[in-house]
């Protein structure tokens, strides 16, 4: 047994770091529980990426702290190219505002963003509003009357909603839940008035008429939710907050590896199979790489920091 272990060690030693990257399994950390939106997107992408790169991909889910636990643990990894982070934007741009994290948006090597979608606010069919404008007017006219569920205190979903509410001086009561599934359950059961969360879980209920989604948090409207207004049409285009996903590496990752990965991601994200998969979840492919991605992270971080301060959530 010792012999075997030594052989493995010897093989590992003899291998130069970046020669024919990748030449062994890549471990992808997902800072969210198995089965959630980020997890499914990353796993589907991983199956395509495995073929493209010719290396197998092992997924490690490290949930908790709104994503900060997994991201912090990932930060300790060496920049070998064999450990990557597949995350959504919240742990990178929102969580550092409300928690004392050991990282900032620039603590990583940006590789590529993969897809994006909006959050949505939905109500029951009997709610006295049928458009985005009416919805906001109803909320503004009744301060502290309505409750809205969100993905957790100080999460991107809550900040996305509060950006809209603040600019219209709306006071709605935030009820934090453990995730979109739990929010949906309480919304359908009538325990909260407004569903706030990603589009995918609530989509079937708009189709059967149990929910009407009146606002999406993107500037443009979303095809899957025709009744929902985009923020641009409400004159709130500047308050756009998206839910988007990306792949990051540890700081100091070799540029050659970054290029290989970015090219592979660009190709697999735009693979028809993946685009179709994203469509069923109400997401669209969106690949931003390199410095542009770093700018996007920093820009969003700065914009959300204002909202967090106004809410008194910031550290």
């Amino acid at each position: 047994m010792k012999h075997l272990a030594l052989t493995i060690a010897a093989v590992a030693l003899a291998t130069p770091a970046f020669a024919d990257y990748p030449e062994r399994a890549i471990e992808v950390t997902i800072p969210a529980p198995a089965g959630g939106g980020t997890d499914t997107s990353a796993r589907k992408l991983a199956t395509l990426l495995e073929e493209e790169l010719g290396a197998s991909i092992a997924i490690l889910n490290v949930a908790g702290g709104g994503g900060s636990v997994g991201v912090t643990q990932f930060m300790m990894q060496k920049p070998t190219g064999y450990s990557l982070l597949a995350t959504w934007n919240s742990p990178i741009t929102t969580v550092p505002q409300v928690q004392q994290t050991a990282y900032q948006p620039d603590s990583f090597t940006p590789i590529a963003s993969t897809s994006e979608t909006a959050y949505t606010l939905c109500v029951k069919p009997d709610f006295p509003a049928d458009t985005g404008e009416e919805f906001l007017a109803e909320l503004a006219a009744n301060p502290a009357k309505y409750t809205y569920g969100n993905d957790g205190i100080g999460g991107t979903m809550q900040l996305a909603a509060e950006r809209i509410f603040q600019s219209r001086e709306i006071d709605a009561i935030a009820i934090p839940f453990g995730g979109a599934g739990e929010t949906l359950q309480n919304f359908l059961g009538g325990h909260i008035d407004i569903y706030g969360g990603s589009i995918s879980p609530v989509l079937p209920y708009t189709e059967n008429g149990e929910a009407k989604c009146l606002i999406v948090t993107s500037a443009a409207p979303v095809d899957a939710l025709p009744q929902a207004a985009g923020l641009e049409s409400l004159g709130l285009g500047a308050e756009e907050t998206l839910l988007w996903r990306m792949v990051l590496g540890p700081a100091g990752l070799d540029p050659a590896i970054v290029d290989t990965l970015a090219a592979a991601l660009e190709k697999t994200v735009n693979d028809p199979a993946y685009v179709e998969f994203l469509a069923t979840k109400g997401e669209t492919p969106n690949v931003v790489t390199g410095d542009a991605l770093a700018d996007r992270l920093q820009g969003e971080y700065d914009a959300l920091s204002k909202v967090a301060k106004a809410l008194g959530l910031n550290q």
Partner: peptide
């Protein structure tokens, strides 16, 4: 979802 079905 990965197999293209929509839970709901």
């Amino acid at each position: 979802l990965i197999h293209g079905l929509q839970p709901g």
